[in-house]
């Protein structure tokens, strides 16, 4: 596990689009439990994410943070309770799972780009074959997002020729090409050199500024302070505490939260 870090962006963050809807629910998790064999990894998770929320999930390793967001696009199966994404409840029904995955983008710790395809092909594969978009149009969209993550000149290279930070930005662009309504980030900066963390965070902040609904599992507490509207602290498979970032950092309530924060903040 990487160390928690405090990278911040020294610029004014534009909050004009960062509005949380009062009525539109993006994700609802009700009484959800999950086991790996006999091990009870997620216990009674209840979480309601409104459209436009920017949530940071923090917690020690092994606390079930990644497992939780992987349940939201059904990379992991839950055994009890309900998960409703964009009004679609996740069950074993493959059609519904694909429906949810089309609308939920995910960024992984290890990027998971397709090494045998060029950057442009990485970005256009799903739009062409899942959404049925024409190749030229998909490529135009791809170039648009590559410009947004500031690496259009790498379009015809292979992932293996890019730095970690560039690869992660490509991975974010790849998800965005599907024009998702929700983005999940699973420790997006944990595998990066400190110098590259900032360039990836910058892209994530831009996304937040555009009003994207985001759930980020991350150790970037600076990002949590600057961008999140809610911080969730998990331990031993449970949500221990959640609050607005200012309150969360300044005034933690639970013993576990206090201990965790005292270890990572100086």
């Amino acid at each position: 596990m990487s160390q928690p870090s405090e990278v911040t962006v020294d610029r004014v963050i534009d909050t004009s689009h960062m509005t949380v809807s009062d009525t539109d629910v993006a994700i609802e998790v009700i009484g959800m439990h999950k086991w790996y064999g006999d091990f009870h990894v997620l216990r009674d998770i209840n979480l309601k994410v409104m459209k436009g929320e920017r949530i940071v999930i923090a917690g020690p390793s092994g606390s079930g943070k990644s497992t939780l967001i992987r349940c939201i696009n059904r990379l992991e199966e839950h055994q009890e309770g309900q998960i409703i994404v964009n009004g679609t409840e996740l069950t074993a029904d493959l059609k519904r799972i694909d429906e949810v995955r089309r609308e939920v983008g995910m960024v992984f710790q290890h990027f998971n780009l397709f090494p045998h395809l060029t950057i442009l092909q990485n970005l256009t594969l799903a739009p062409i074959w899942v959404r049925g978009i024409a190749k030229a149009e998909a490529e135009a969209t791809a170039m648009h997002y590559l410009e947004r993550v500031k690496i259009p000149e790498q379009a015809n290279k292979y992932p293996g020729q890019l730095s970690g930070g560039q690869q992660q930005r490509v991975a974010i662009a790849r998800s965005l090409c599907m024009q998702p309504q929700i983005m999940l980030f699973d420790e997006p900066t944990s595998a990066l050199d400190p110098e590259m963390v900032k360039e990836v965070l910058e892209v994530m902040i831009n996304l937040a500024e555009d009003g994207m609904t985001m759930i980020c599992v991350t150790h970037e507490m600076g990002f949590a302070r600057q961008v999140a509207n809610r911080v969730i602290f998990m331990d031993q498979g449970q949500i221990i505490e959640q609050n607005e970032p200012q309150e969360f950092f300044a005034n933690p309530q639970h013993e576990r939260t206090k201990l965790f924060l005292s270890q990572i903040l100086h």
Partner: peptide, 17 residues
């Protein structure tokens, strides 16, 4: 790596695709 399967799945690609 399992990540390749997961990346495909998370983009909504069906098993065969």
């Amino acid at each position: 790596p399992r990540g390749q399967y997961e990346a495909g799945a998370s983009l909504g690609l069906s098993y065969w695709k």
